[in-house]
Every structure is written in structure tokens, then in C-alpha cells.
Design a binder for these strands. Sequence first.
DNA 1: CGTATGCTTGAATCACGTCAACTGATGTGG
DNA 2: CCACATCAGTTGACGTGATTCAAGCATACG
Lengths: 243, 243
Amino acid sequence: MSPLVNPAYMGSMRHLTRVQFDRLVDRMSEVRVVDPRTVISRQDNPLEESLLLCKGLMGRYITDQGGERRRLVALQVPGDFVDLHSFPLHRLDHDVACVEECHLAVFKHADLLALMEEDADLGRKLWALTMIDASIHRHWAFRISAMRALERIANFLSEVEIRLAEDNTPVGDSFRMPLTQAELGEACGLSTVHVNRVLRDLREDNCLILRDGRVTVLDRARMQRVGGFDPYFLYPPQNVVVG
Amino acid sequence: MSPLVNPAYMGSMRHLTRVQFDRLVDRMSEVRVVDPRTVISRQDNPLEESLLLCKGLMGRYITDQGGERRRLVALQVPGDFVDLHSFPLHRLDHDVACVEECHLAVFKHADLLALMEEDADLGRKLWALTMIDASIHRHWAFRISAMRALERIANFLSEVEIRLAEDNTPVGDSFRMPLTQAELGEACGLSTVHVNRVLRDLREDNCLILRDGRVTVLDRARMQRVGGFDPYFLYPPQNVVVG
DNA sequence: CGTATGCTTGAATCACGTCAACTGATGTGG
DNA sequence: CCACATCAGTTGACGTGATTCAAGCATACG
């Protein structure tokens, strides 16, 4: 088994107290290492366990009937449960897949149930985690609905920078962002070609550079201003510095 | 006091058993009647109660900093909790407002907490309700992101028809849909003018007619086909017929 | 009465999508 | 080793779906 990476107290896990986090990790079944692009679960599959992302990026995807149009409806970063909503719902309305190689801590629903029975407050914290997830969904809907391409991309990258902050070993003013331009388009409701042009504009404006899976932030204030970015929707835990 | 309309066992309440529903209603504090366009709560307001919509339509709105761009990110119909997510989150990331006159059953968070302690299964059902809400958010993001205007409107109206089904006294093949064209645009990410043109197209295609706050469905199969509609994301309760 | 609100339509504009071609990096098998 | 395929990125030309601006109409309301 030998979990190469154990769950770390980071990202959304910081909404739990340290004690609650340790109590949760005690219930973990195993850590799985999953290849890039692997589909973890598909729409309508019955699920009996939930997965905590320890390393790597994952996405949640909605595809239409024909299967030709696919959209990224959520991006999960280390410290996120990727399918905790399957605990109350049992089946999901979307697919879950790895963007890159991922390490996933497995929690059986039966074990989560037992844990919540002995710590009701932790149960409500887990509920709150799924509600922050929903807040992010609303923000995504707003972003796609109300913002133009340039603003969308700047806003999206501002969000990702904050959510990945703890996962990043800082390299100057850059952060890891392994989504391809096509995947960025799937997330922001834009064609690959247009994403490419917007990124050129942002680069030529000395705002940011996306290259080789890294975003180099040339002017953070500008990036967040261009993106009309307000991190409220992320419900940042108190002990994490934002902005 | 005299609640004109008491909570009815309808809509998303059907995910609860009849016994659970009665147990919930026992904990109700009061029923409030609220004027059209009233803002019930604003972003960041601390909340200590949640509201169950008994009659009327309500919306959840995100506005940007300037306040000039407002979007509808959720529509609530009778049988929906409009802000149950404030139970785990305490503050919301958006505003909640009435579209028309509404009747709202009030549940204090302290009472919900006590109820969930004595019926843990009901607690998980309430969690599930908020997760269906999140599923609808994902669908809205997909709709705005992946569909063109005609498809969006047809899809939106297909969704609303099903969600309002139990609330409707059937008048031929029509259902009540009191959103203005401007509000439809706020929900679907379209300008008022374009919503108007799309509605003209749908009318001239003998698909549906929106007039005087009612949608007359001329060809339901066509409406759902044009809208690429699949009701999976609504997680319809077993005892309700869909389609 | 006048004013506000919702609906409707036309004309001009533009943001973005589509199609197509080309580059460079990486990988693979003969 | 080279020939070839594949994939991410890039750019130009062109088309179009949707926005914006503007004007006009109908209804409701004080």
C-alpha cells in the first residue's frame, strides 16, 4: 500500500480543527495513486466511498447526450474532497476524472457515517465543505454568465492561484497550473483558439504569462482587477492568508 | 400570524418521508408573507434561520462589485428551502429575493439542530437537498457554458416546467412562469433583447409561447429536444412522475 | 393625464467561434 | 537512426450569434 503522500492538513481541510482532521484521517481506508486522465467515476455510478485529493488536480465534467460537448464544472485541488456529495446523494450527476497523476485518500461512506455519529460537529463541517463547493459553482455560473473572455480567464486564474497556494512551492511569482488551453476553455466556456488569444493579450499587457503548465504573475493587482476578483465565495478559513 | 399557506409536502420536500416532513413542520416557527421584489437577505449577512418556500418564486442573485451586473444563479420553487446552506455556512455568498409575493416557513437553526440530533437520517436528507441544489448549479453552469441561446431558453423552461409541476393547477398545456424576459436573461446569461428574439423563434416554430407570465407548451417533445433536456440533474424523487 | 414597466423590432457593431494551416516538442516503431 | 504520428500551441481569415443603441407600442398605475 505504502501511501506516498498522506492527507495533509491543507486547503479546505483547514475548515476542520486539527483534532477533527486527525480523527478523519484515522478513518481512511487507503491512498490510491491514479494515472493522468483516468476517469474515477461516471455519472449515475453508485458510490460507496468518497475521495480526498492529496496530490494532483482533478476535474468534474458534464457531457451532453451526444458526448461531443464536455465542460469542466469544477476543479479540485489538494485538500478537497472530490466527491463528498456522493455521501448524501449516492449517485452523481457528472463524471470525475484526474487531470494529472493524483493521490487519493479513500473514505468508505460507512466509516464516515460512524465518524459523524461520534462527532456531529465534524459532520456539519463536512456538510459545510460541500456548501463551499456549491458556492464555487455559483461563482463559476456567474463568471461564465456575466464576464467577457479576458475577465473570465483572469478571474479563473486568480481563483486557482489562491486555491493552490498551499500546494505550491513558490517559484518566484509563479504557480503550477497544469491545465491545457483547451481545458481552460472547457472551464471558462471559451474555444481553445479564443483562450489562446486572451492569454496573448494578458501576456502583452504584462499581466501574466501561462507557459509549460505554470502561470507567472507579472502584476497580481492588475490580474485581480482585470478579473474583477473577490475571494469571498471561497469562504477562506481564518488561518489562511488570502489576496 | 395566521399562516395563509402552510408548508405542503411537495417539490423537494418529497425527498423526505411523510413522517420526516411532519416532524420538520412541527419545528416551524412561523409563516411569513413577503412582498414581491423584497430582498430577504444579502451577501455576508449572518443568518440564524432558514426559510422553506411555500408559495411564490424566489431567486438567488450574485452582483459584482459595482452592482451593475446582476445574475440569477438559482431559482427556488415551492417546496424548496431557499437558504438551507446558511445552516452549515452561517453567511451566504449571494443575495436572496422574492420574484413575486411569497409565503415562507421559518425554521430557526437551533431548532433544526435539535431536530437533526433526534433524527440523524433526516439530517442527511437535508444535506441531500442542498446537494441537489448544487447539482442544479452545475447544470446551470453547463447550460450557460455549452448551449446557445435557443437551446438555453428551451432547456431552462423545460427545467422550470418540471420543478413547478406540483405547484401548478394545470391550465391546458400551460404553466405559470412569472419571470420577465429581463429576468430570464439574467438566468440564462442573455440580453433582454435576445431573449425576446429567441422567444419569438420558439413561438414561430410552434414550440412554446410565453405570455402574461404563463408558458404554453405547444410541443413538449420538441421543447425538450431543442433544449437538449435530460432531467437527471434534478434527482427527481421516486414518487414524482417526470417528463 | 403622465410616468413607469414590459415587450417588440430594426440597424450597427463586436466578441467570439469555426475553419484551416503551420509550428515545435515529444514519442514510437521500423 | 529516421519517418511518422500526435498533441499543445499559435495565427489569419471569415462568418455569425449575440450585444448595444434606439425607437416605438401597450398596459398598468398614481
